[in-house]
């Protein structure tokens, strides 16, 4: 317990420090409503993908196919929308809204199916998750390319684009959606049997098996949830950029894994919580926006991200060693 909180605590300190540093360096630009709006608009889609990877990581697996799944879901939704309620189709409002609802639903379904396939490969065939999802990443991404022939799909109804552009109470709508998902996921992970089983399988699969948990069943549901999260990310993605294209956001994959690890999720499973993920997302976004404002090269943020990950891990290493030394000493005293 202390171990877990310590990681989140050191991350919290770094995040606050980064925030204060940026505020001191560029108070007139960084501490403005516009900057915060642009920062919070970018977090959700990326954050949802990271959450998908996180829940798989909690079970000791990983889902490398999240971005490809999101793209496939986005393309499905985009095709439905442009075909039946495109900007020039002249469909009336009721039809348009129904089509939008249907396409969002379709995106979720595609995400869940992709997740189901991953789950089946991992459980029934017993493929290591990293390999199974590596393969399906190519498969789903490639399907998207085949469907679109590599071109982008544009021309969504304006009612749909509201999702990406609305700012109720000066906060982007996408952030509300993201926080809602985080809240639901928090309840699922911490208050339900399913969530408990996820942590249990990650911590000790053998013990989980002997305590009567149907591991395969839980794992399939975990990968399906990851697919659903990718489906939600897909909707936010195409609503913001107003186009769907296979290969979009492919560069998000490694940073999303990075966010999970930075947020204190143990890649071999069992440990990690949502607070850490949200903090890690905020930290990365603060650094990215901050360095943009400071006018540094757009690639410099990569250096910062990579360095941040390694620094946090080294800090954790020393923290661990310190804590362990305390435990080892205690029996000697008594």
């Amino acid at each position: 317990m202390i171990y877990k909180n310590k990681k989140v605590f050191s991350l919290l300190i770094i995040t606050v420090a980064a925030f204060i540093l940026m505020s001191i360096l560029e108070p007139t630009v960084f501490l403005t409503l516009r900057n915060f709006q642009s920062m919070t608009v970018q977090i959700p889609e990326f954050g949802l993908l990271a959450l998908g990877i996180m829940i798989c990581m909690l079970t000791g697996g990983i889902d490398l196919s999240v971005v490809a799944t999101a793209n496939l879901a986005a393309i499905t939704a985009a095709i439905i929308m442009t075909k039946f309620a495109g900007a020039e189709s002249g469909a009336n409002l009721t039809v348009t809204l129904t089509v939008i609802a249907l396409s969002i639903f379709a995106a979720f379904i595609v995400g869940i199916i992709c997740g189901f396939i991953n789950g089946m490969l991992v459980t029934r065939l017993g493929i290591t998750p990293i390999l199974a999802t590596l393969g399906t990443m190519g498969l789903f991404g490639g399907l998207g390319v085949i469907i679109t022939k590599g071109k982008g799909i544009v021309g969504f109804p304006p009612q749909f684009l509201i999702i990406g552009t609305a700012h109720p109470l000066a906060i982007p709508l996408v952030l509300y959606i993201f926080l809602g998902v985080v809240l639901i996921l928090g309840v699922v992970l911490n208050r339900t049997m399913f969530g408990f089983n996820i942590y249990m399988i990650g911590a000790n699969p053998l013990a989980a098996c002997f305590s009567g948990i149907n591991i395969n069943n839980v794992l399939v549901r975990v990968y399906m949830s990851s697919g659903l999260l990718a489906g939600i990310a897909a909707i936010l993605m195409i609503a913001r950029v107003n186009s769907a294209r296979s290969g979009y956001a492919a560069t998000f994959l490694l940073p999303a894994v990075l966010v999970c690890v930075l947020g204190g999720v143990n890649p071999s499973g069992g440990f990690g919580n949502l607070t850490g993920i949200v903090l890690a997302l905020s930290l990365l976004q603060i650094l990215q926006s901050g360095f943009n404002i400071l006018g540094s090269s757009s690639f410099f943020k990569n250096v910062i991200w990579g360095a941040m990950l390694l620094i946090v891990m080294v800090i954790n290493y020393f923290g661990d060693r310190y804590a362990r030394r305390g435990i080892e000493r205690r029996p000697a005293k008594s």
Partner: peptide, 13 residues
């Protein structure tokens, strides 16, 4: 993963 982003980012910046 960290050094991948850092190495390429360092070269590019």
């Amino acid at each position: 993963l960290g050094t991948l982003t850092a190495y390429q980012g360092a070269l590019m910046s």
